[in-house]
Design a protein around this nucleic acid. Sequence first.
RNA 1: GCCUCGGUGGCGGAACUGGCAGACGCGCGAGACUUAAAAUCUCGUUCUCUUACGAGAGUGUGGGUUCGAUUCCCGCCCGAGGCACCA
Length: 909
Amino acid sequence: MSQNQKQAEKKQAEKTPVKYQHQSVETKWLDKWEQEGLFQDTFGDFGGNNYKMKAGKKKKKKAEKKKAAEKKKGKGAVKPEDKMYLLFAFAYPSGSGLHVGHVESKTALDIMARYNRMNGKDVFFPVGWDAFGLPAENYAVKTGVHPEETTKNAINTFRRQIKRVGISYDWANEIATSHPDYYQWTQWLFIQLFQNGLAYKDIGMVNWCPSCKTVLANEQVVEGLCERCDSEVMQKKLEQWYFKITDYKDELIEGLDEVDWPEATKRQQKNWIGRSEGANVDFEVVDSQSANQGGKDKNDNLKLTCFTTRTDTIFGVSFLVISPEKFKEFELEKYLAKDKFDEVEKYIKQAFKKTEEERQIGEKDKTGVNTGLKVINPVNGEEAPLFIADYVLGGVGTGVVMGVPAHDERDWAFAKKHNLSIKPVIKPQFRELKDNECFTDYGVMINSGDYTGRLSLEGREELVEDFSHVIAKTTTYKLRDWLISRQRYWGAPIPIIYDPDGSPHAIKDEDLPWALPHDVDFKPTGESPLKSSQKLIKRTHKYVVENFADLIAEHKKDGWAQDGSDWEPEFDTMDTFVDSSWYYLRYLHSRNKDAFSQEDRLNNWMPVDFYLIGPEHIVLHLLYSRFFTKFLRDQGYIDLENGEPFAKMRHQGMILGPDHKKMSKSKGNVINPDKIVKKYGADTLRVYEMFIGPLEADKPWDDRAVQGVFRFLHKMYGLVQDLADYYQTNEGEEVKTAAKLEQKLHQTIRKVGKDIPQLKFNTAIACMMEFSNEWRSWLVHDQAGEEEKNHPGLSLADAKKLVKILAPFAPFMAEEMWNQLGEKFSVHQQTWPEFDADLAQEEQAIIPVQVNGKLRGELILPAEVAADRDSEIEILTQAKELQSVQKWIKDKEIKKEIFVPGKIVSLVV
RNA sequence: GCCUCGGUGGCGGAACUGGCAGACGCGCGAGACUUAAAAUCUCGUUCUCUUACGAGAGUGUGGGUUCGAUUCCCGCCCGAGGCACCA
């Protein structure tokens, strides 16, 4: 090491013992932001108006124009291209507080919010709580603490923690689903659905969790177990409220083409809706006319309808299978021969003993019984035996399946087991069928009468046309209506009361909220806890007298009590997914007393521009939210043609423990964000979480790598502080940024500005790290040769640019730097710096030279020359003259010479 | 079984549209500073062979296309997630 270098190093070492006191600096700015109401009250509903840019003339003009537009259209009006609605999935305020995973997604959105604000967008970045739900209620059961209390405390903790990491949420518009001002509108939404026939009551088999003592939606049953507590789910008959989401099934599929979501997510939604297109085919049951009272004609035979997607295989039907449930439903036992009766009944009994679950994932053994009954194939009149088997599910399709063993694996297995004939009717288009082959693909029809030789896809269309009296095109869906009743306390009460006949009546809009009563015993008994509330009952009777006097009087003759005492309220509460599937609309006018939101804002601000949610919400939450939005559009509340609430959506990955496993208390690998904030500061926590990897990937926590980010931020701070000192001491002095640093700075501005919208925060940070490395390296090494000693490297103006691009990532430190550079509050209200493409341009290009595909040398050329096709001959000549290349090409004939401008030279010998 | 995503150094991860694989960070090694340690700073760090110069191999695996493949195509292996007797 040279003497010069040593000295420079020493000097640097002496200069850098700056201590950045993250605790005091961060809390100082936190208080200031709070005081100034920075980024609060986006719509000015609360008297503040801080969201506007406080920037240059251009912006002012823009702001004035906007104001004029607002006068016309009402407050909150924005041009679609100027608005940016950023949304993070509602958090459930759990008792254990903020998780590092929350910090990751919130920080990512916060960076986008700050970046977009600096680029002149009107950003709306709200926050709220999915506050109803089981954990608080379970805790109440255990400890007796009222869920309201628990929830309030948890929210306070979360709020404090989130503010501490500097997330620039609009807290003025904060909402919580458990607040009457919010659930009033959840109830209103229920009533809207009810009045439009989309909320209805029905008796049905429901999934029942014996441990949580509540009903679960299909979506909440995971492999036969309760999503929350892992107990085995049972089937139970109950009368429940449903939302008719199936009315929107097709639109819920088609709308997916209009949104920018991950393909995998779209596919999952489609799978869940499960549309399958096919046909219903009628098979007559031979000699079943006796049951059709008085019917003598053969045409009066009972018909069994099969659903199939493969009409083209219909000539290959060698048996028909009916599910045990449908067998009973059609009362087919009436036609059984005596010798078959016992066998069949026994089988059905056994089948009913099995739960749906056993039948599905249990042994795929194709059990079944031949009923002895025959059916007639409608296309060729052939007779086929009717079997009863539990691999056919009563609830899927029509519960009757045509058995085509030659072209379906399950039918094949069944036919083999029960010795049934197998008749191939489709062959592959470009080869012959092998012996014993079960060919399940489309192909060419064979052994199919007049249709032999047709392609599957054509033949099946023709069949449907030719046999329209027995074959009808049909589409089936897996999606069922959404069961929303819950026998729990901590949720929004269903705003319904029942008259003595049991007919439901909605609470009037003006009487909402229909409050959740307090005097309730939470202990789960299998009955709804609200049944224990005397106040609710009394309130109901009073309400009836006040609002249904006419109806009561009318029914006096029917013996209705005139004091309303024979009316009952609905005791169930709503699934919490109801609360959390419309909150993004409420945000837009969070305190509106007269409506669930506000029309102008809905029209101006919807759809959400960017939604970040965990992958666990892919099916349920998105499906329900889309359903609600489409419904409200149909009711004329939102002018959103495709009814899609979330234009762009991505999923954040999980932050795993240091052991690469999912964080959990039991594994003891949970990282507490509070501790990291205390030790390293919120900026370090933020930047670290953004740096470890792509937002969408799962990535493990690495304690030591946090240090690296900590070092980077402190290095940056030291550099900026030295620079600030320099300009303070040499006041008024103009220093030009060193050429090398200027180029790098502009490259960095370009890179960071490009990466943020693409969510590539990790590479943006890496680039800023590179800049800090280069800056310091310049100070230590390169400056030594310069005449001017103590050159800070950057001009004051350029240093400010650097601070600005750091601001979204490390908002506290950037604010402090901004202050140190003598600028006025706040760096977060500045405009994003522009880069100069010429300055960012590399002067020299390194062109690698390959011989036979291997790197053998490189040419260093002026960038313009390297990128110019006209310099091909010259560059190729130079390349061939390189010593390292000569070694490989001399005495050899060059067969091919390739020059790709700006990229590479490739020689083949 | 089907669908989706992924597999790159000791680790987390970079790599534009087919053009120098391994940016950045961690870790590790050497050094500076220090009585010492920590902190900080400098240099090095894909692997193998070589004192060195250099050479060879290398992005799960086997092929293919190409002057050139982490990137495109075909087959296989492994991992994660989803769906699943869906007719």
